[in-house]
């Protein structure tokens, strides 16, 4: 399970990407999945509207943050998810 939680100061972009990658692996259930800033839902088999809800839920729980509906609605790729996470952990 995703129990390792990393807090404010140690947080950098790479580390957030790695952690979000782990969350994707867990939710999409694909151990080989490798995501980058540019990855979009189209690139990932199994990233659909349903799993998206799970991803949001899992990312929120993991980083102990809460996204607004508008933030979620504006994401175009993984990079923007990371931006949202970082902006809340500043």
């Amino acid at each position: 399970m995703l129990s390792k939680r990393i807090y404010l100061k140690e947080m950098d972009r790479d580390s957030v990407l790695k952690q979000i990658n782990e969350i994707f692996i867990d939710v999409i259930d694909n151990k080989e999945l490798l995501i980058t800033d540019e990855t979009t839902a189209r690139d990932v088999d199994g990233w659909n509207s349903l799993t998206h809800i799970e991803l949001v839920d899992a990312i929120e729980n993991h980083f102990r943050i809460r996204f607004t509906l508008n933030e979620i609605g504006q994401w175009k790729n993984v990079g923007q998810i990371i931006e949202s996470v970082l902006s809340k952990k500043k």
Binding site: H52, I53, V56, D57, F67, L69, I72
Partner: peptide, 16 residues
Amino acid sequence: FDSTTYFRSDMVFSIA
């Protein structure tokens, strides 16, 4: 209940 899950997917129970 989780408002994000509810407003985004009309699912009235949280995933947890």
